[in-house]
Simulated assay, not measured.
Amino acid sequence: MSEGLVTRIERYAAYDGPGIRTVVFLKGCPLRCQWCSSPETQHKEQELYYDGELVGRYMNVEEVFSEIKEDITFYNQSGGGVTLSGGEVLLQPRFITDILKRCQEEYIHTAIETSGYGSWDNFEEILEFTDLVLFDLKHLDTGKHLELTGVENTWIIDNLKRAAKLDKEIIIRIPVIPGINDSKDNIVKTANLAEKLGIKEIHLLPYHSLGREKYNKLGRRYLLADLESPSDERMNYLKELVENKGLKVQIGG
Rank of each mutant, 00 (worst) to 15 (best):
M1P: 03
S2V: 08
S2P: 12
T7G: 00
Y12N: 15
A14Y: 14
Y15W: 11
Y15Q: 09
R21L: 02
R21P: 00
R21V: 04
T22N: 01
V24L: 07
V24F: 05
F25Y: 10
K27M: 05
K27L: 01
G28F: 07
G28V: 04
C29G: 03
C33R: 05
C36S: 13
C36N: 11
P39L: 09
E40Y: 03
Q42A: 04
E45M: 04
E45D: 04
Q46N: 09
E47G: 07
Y50F: 14
Y50E: 15
E53I: 10
E53A: 11
G56E: 03
G56M: 02
R57M: 12
M59T: 07
N60S: 06
N60Q: 06
N60D: 12
V61E: 01
V64T: 01
F65P: 01
S66Q: 15
E70H: 09
D71I: 00
I72Y: 15
Y75R: 11
Y75G: 06
N76P: 00
N76I: 00
S78R: 02
G80M: 03
T83H: 11
L91Y: 13
L91V: 14
F95D: 03
T97H: 12
T97W: 14
D98F: 02
I99M: 11
K101R: 15
R102F: 00
Q104H: 13
Y107M: 14
I108L: 13
G116T: 07
G116N: 08
Y117M: 07
S119G: 09
N122K: 12
N122P: 05
F123N: 08
E124H: 14
L127D: 07
E128Q: 15
E128L: 15
T130P: 04
G143L: 14
L146F: 08
L146W: 06
E147A: 03
G150W: 14
W155D: 04
I156D: 08
I157F: 15
I157G: 06
I157Y: 13
K161F: 14
A163S: 13
D167V: 01
K168P: 05
K168I: 12
I172D: 02
R173K: 08
I174F: 12
I174M: 13
G179V: 06
G179Q: 09
D182V: 11
S183D: 07
K184N: 08
D185M: 14
N186W: 05
N186D: 10
I187G: 00
I187P: 00
K189E: 13
K189I: 02
A191W: 07
A191T: 09
N192H: 10
L193V: 06
L193M: 13
E195T: 03
K196L: 08
G198Y: 03
G198L: 05
K200D: 02
L204Q: 07
L204T: 04
P206K: 05
Y207Q: 01
S209E: 11
L210S: 02
R212L: 10
E213L: 06
K217G: 00
L218C: 06
R220C: 06
Y222V: 01
A225G: 00
D226W: 15
L227V: 05
L227K: 11
E228T: 11
E228F: 13
S229G: 00
S231R: 15
E233P: 00
R234Y: 03
M235F: 08
K239G: 02
L241F: 10
L241Y: 08
V242A: 08
V242Y: 12
K245T: 09
Q250E: 13
G252E: 09
G252I: 05
G253N: 12
